[in-house]
Every structure is written in C-alpha cells, then in structure tokens.
Design a protein around this nucleic acid. Structure first.
Lengths: 338, 338
DNA sequence: CTGAAAGCGCTAACAG
DNA sequence: CTGTTAGCGCTTTCAG
C-alpha cells in the first residue's frame, strides 16, 4: 500500500513549495497559469485526493452538518433527511446522521458526538422523552447554527421549521363539516406534545366556528397506533351518541379506526375518518384515507436553507426565524360522503 | 464568544504538560490517580470538548463510515440505514450519509466526497444507472473497507450482503402452488438487474419442480410501479389462458395488480397475488398482500458487522465474504385461497 | 508570482 | 509518573 499523495509530494515533484500547490489547487488568482496547469496535471497524475480533515482543522469549518432524528424508519423523518441531504450536498455540505430512537440519553450523546466531530451546525427533531434541553443549548452556546423541526421545545431559542398544527386540526375538522358530517369524534394521544395539542385545539375551534358542540364523550385520549385506533373506535361505537365522523391523531391510529369500523359494517365514508401525516400506505388502503400532509420534503428543504442562511452570519442567532408551513389537506375516499 | 478550551488550556491551568492531560483524558494507566482526577475535573470545569478532527488527523482514523444509498425516501434503504447507524454507533462510529438518487454522477461524487472526508469505510447500494464501477474500485485500492448490499455488481471484489433472490422467487411461487394455484403469471421489469432476474429464475425453477408449465403469454415485462401493475394485470386479464395467480416484481406493482383485479371483480385471493419487499402498506391494504420480506434490518446489521470485522484486519480484503440472507415469506390474505 | 514558516488540536515516541 | 518534541496535511500571513 503506497502512502497517499499529499501536496508535499506534488510540490517536490514540481520543485515548488506547498504554498504554491495549495494556491493552485484552490484556484487562487495570484498564480501563473503555467504553474497552475502543471500542478493540476501532476495532481491528477499522482492521483491526489485532498484530506479535508486537515483543511478543516486549519479553517475550523468541516462543511458537515449533523442531523438528529428519532428514527429513519419513520417515513416522515426519512423524507426530511432526504431533502436536507439533497439541498445541502449541492452547497458543499455533508450530512452526519444520528438517531435518538426516542431516547433522551441517545439524544444527548448525539449532540455530544456531533459537536466533537466539529459539525458546522445541527438540524434536529426532538425525542418524545426530551424535557430538559440543556444539551441543545450547548450548541447555541457555541454559536453554532441549531435548527429544530417538527418537534420543537419552548425553552430553546433557536430557529425552527414546523407545521401549523392548529391549522391542521382545523382543516381536518372543517373538511369533515364541509362534507356534511356533524358529530365528530377525536381519538388522540394523552401525551402532552405541542403538535398533538395544537391539532386538538384546531379541532375545537373549527367546531365552535361552525356552531357545533364538542361531545366530550366522543373524545378518546390514549396512544397513537393501529391498536389504539381500534380501541378508540370501539369506545366510540359504544357511545350513546354515536359520532358520524372520527378524526385520529395520526394515520396509523386512523387505520385502526377504519379496521374497527369495517368489522362493524360501518365502512367509511359512511362514518368519515381522517388521519394526520399522509403515510405511504394511506393512499392504498380501502377505503383510501383522507389525511393532512405534513410537508416533509418542504420541511427538510427549509431547514437546509435556514442553516445556509445562518452559517453566513457572524452571529447566527441575530434574528431568529420561525418558519411555519401550512399543512395540506389530502381528500380521499374515507371522507367522501355524498 | 470565548475560544473553545483545548488540552493546552487545561494543561496551563494545572501546570502540567499537554501529554499528561492527553494521557489522563484517554485513561492511560501510566498516570497518577491524583493528576488524572485533577485533569478530569478541570476539563469538566472548563467545559472541555475534544476536537476529534485533530486526533483523526493524527491517527488517520475518523471513526466515521460513509453510507451511499439511492434514496432515504425508499423505505427499504431507510431501514437499512437505521440498523447500520444503530449498530455502528454502539461501536463508536458515526455515519456520513450520501444519496445517489439513482444517478451515476451523484454516486461518483459520493465516493469522492466520502473519501475526501477520510471515512474509515463505505457501505453502499448501487444506483440503477451504474454500469462502470471504477469509483468503487478506488476505495478498494485505498484498502478501505467497502461493503455492498442488495444491489451489487459482479466486477467489484468486495464483501456483500444480499438476499437470495432466487429463493425469494422460488418461495413466492411455491407458496402459491401450496395454496392450490396452478396457472401463475408474472409481472416484472425488463431491466436487467440481477435481483429481478434471480427472482424470475426462481419462479421458473419452482414451476418446473412442481411439474407446472410456464405460460409464456402470462409473463409481462415492463416497469415496476402501481401503474405498471395495473397495466400488467390488464394484459393478463385479456389472456386466452387466464392465470389463477399473479406474482408481481415488487409490492407497488402487486398493488396495481390488485387494484385492477378488484375493478374486474376478481378480488384476491380468488386470483392469488404476491409481491416482493414487504412495504409498510402491504399489511394494510385490502386484501392484505402476501409478500417476501427483504430483511432490511438484518441486512443493515450484517453490513455493519462486516465493516467492524474488516476494519480490524490489516488487509480487509484478505478473504472476502458474501453474506446471503434468506428471504422470509409473509403470508397474508391475497393468497389465502381455501 | 512564489517561498518560508507558523500553527490548527491532538498523539506518541523518546527521554528523563 | 511526567515532560519534550515532532509531526498529521493543509492554509495563510509575511516576505521577497
């Protein structure tokens, strides 16, 4: 195994100094076309590949951004990562990935690891466990760009990119009302996470604006999963005030609701069902599920752009922006009551 | 913004030298408990965070692995990445992510970027466009571990982790035969990719072993997508020799097939349908889709383990292993003919 | 237009 | 048990 060639090797080869080689390689103007050409040629001939580690050590910039997400197995996060990487790669940045697996401990380790790797910034979505956020504050303290998306936290003074979940809830509800449903139930999580809360608030407001009352008995707080959906639907089916539509906290829960309804011969859209997230499967189940799209790709792109903007400023936290994307209603069969 | 504290700062603080500090920090035994304790304490007090860049430059190891996949938006790849990152993080490695987007040019850029970042190895699945593989050979030439998964290439002499796609095809076919189907059609891609070809070969062998003939008119070569599935099924429905079961090249195509069949009141399992990949949606559509699971998580874990094994050897390519995982049959409603 | 030399932060051989 | 010192590969003043 021959040693990798460095700028020293190519300097020696050409009887110039490393500074000359460095300049030529970096396309500085203060260099004669002749030597520049020579350098470039021998570089290629000697199969030179720059060691970015060395320049990073010198410059203090790694051209690398850290991304922390709960799990790439969740389609939403995979999509966000997709567009972050796409956007940033075109701007000369690399992506260092870290999964928290919804564990605070992992998340803390994540920012530590990324910081030690000297990333130029971090884009993250918090784990469900996270309450104390001092680990995130440490990146702000270093004056490195930190951008939070989707799952943010009120104690962190950093830019964020989120969906307007109040509108999402409102939109889902209004859609059902528009379709003629009047007695709308809600199956969601008791977890005190902002986004779920906001959706619920939007739901309530929409009902109020339409002069519809909230049937407290038709609100089920549990978890979010297919199983929870079945459970929630089961509870509503036993209600003395059977709802004519059900909104679920996410698409998986909605799927559970649909399954339970079908088993009871109350196939949507006879009873309307709405979810949140627009998972891949939602278009393909029967009946196909109306839902609210979370704009994952746009969210990723916005995070990336935000980072690029921040990284240019001497003080990234000069004037903190919070981007709130509008959710998008996806109408499908499960609410298509005519 | 105060400068970051280095081992020099903490050395000065304690009136010792950097070597002492370095030793203490790295837990060397040749250091007195007293100084070690002092160092650790002041390190914490001064909020010290090591600059891994510097040690990497020195050691030539970055503790970082590069991962190249077509797209994280494809659930299979997202799952593989998930387990790669999970496994490697527990062994002190970070993951640098690069998406090729099925473009050869991007892929070439990917290995260049990762190599310049001095990754300790690369795990990759090739883009559909890739024919010439010299870019991958360059990583082997550097004697750095390269592991290919799922989409490999015969010209690359590197370890690989794949699924036995012949068995996958065989298994799918045998399952249909076991369920009583006798006249089995196939809707797949004309693209000459090994994995698709292997599945088709497995299909043919299984028919032969069961003394069933291949109805050439019931083999459709096109693309792989919902649309292609509908198209393929349409063609088979017009066949003079209507099949009683259809295998599709992947789950999306199978979904298209199912949709078409349902429109023609030939709801599976009346006509049996099988897919490949076990996408998330496959369990949730109606009827739920029988399919062959590709073992994404296991594949990722195996890639990671292979890397760890290789990175330990002085010559990683000493004795190249090819791990072939067995696919797993997932029986669901679409083939449940009784 | 080019050279000399210092230094980014850390490790490790060598010396005591 | 601790200190000295020479780099890792590259960038970047400061001189010429």
């Amino acid at each position: 195994m021959k040693k990798k060639t460095t700028i020293y090797d190519i300097a020696k080869e050409l009887n110039v100094t490393v500074s000359t080689v460095s300049r030529a390689l970096n396309g500085f103007s203060t260099i004669s076309d002749a030597t520049k050409k020579a350098v470039l040629e021998t570089a290629k001939k000697m199969n030179y590949s720059p060691n970015k580690l060395a320049s990073s050590l010198k410059s203090g910039k790694t051209q690398t951004i850290g991304v922390i997400v709960p799990s790439t197995q969740v389609h939403f996060f995979a999509s966000v990562i997709h567009s972050i990487e796409q956007t940033l790669k075109n701007n000369g940045y690399r992506v260092l990935l870290y999964q928290s697996n919804e564990s605070l401990e992992n998340e803390i380790n994540g920012v530590k690891t990324l910081l030690e790797a000297q990333v130029d910034g971090i884009i993250a979505s918090m784990s469900l466990e996270t309450e104390d956020v001092s680990h995130f504050k440490s990146v702000i303290k270093q004056n490195k760009p930190l951008i939070l998306f989707d799952r943010t936290h009120k104690d962190i003074e950093a830019p964020s990119v989120t969906i307007n979940d109040f509108d999402a809830g409102y939109m889902a509800t209004q859609h059902l009302v528009d379709k003629g449903y009047r007695n709308i139930g809600f199956v969601t999580t008791s977890h005190q996470i902002k986004i779920f809360n906001d959706r619920y608030e939007g739901f309530k407001q929409a009902l109020k604006d339409n002069n519809l009352s909230i049937a407290e008995e038709n609100i089920v707080f549990g978890g979010l999963s297919i199983k929870d959906g079945r459970f929630g639907a089961g509870k509503l089916l036993r209600s003395t005030n059977l709802p004519d539509a059900i909104i679920a906290g996410d698409d998986f829960t909605a799927l559970g609701v649909i399954k339970k309804l079908k088993e009871n011969n109350l196939v949507p859209p006879h009873i309307g069902v709405m979810g949140f997230a627009n998972e891949t499967f939602s278009a393909f189940i029967t009946p196909s599920l109306s839902t609210i799209d979370q704009q994952a790709n746009k969210m990723g792109a916005e995070c990336a752009k935000m980072f690029l903007k921040m990284v240019k400023k001497k003080n990234p936290y000069d004037n903190i922006e919070h981007i709130i994307l509008e959710p998008v209603l996806v109408e499908r069969q499960s609410t298509d009551k005519n």
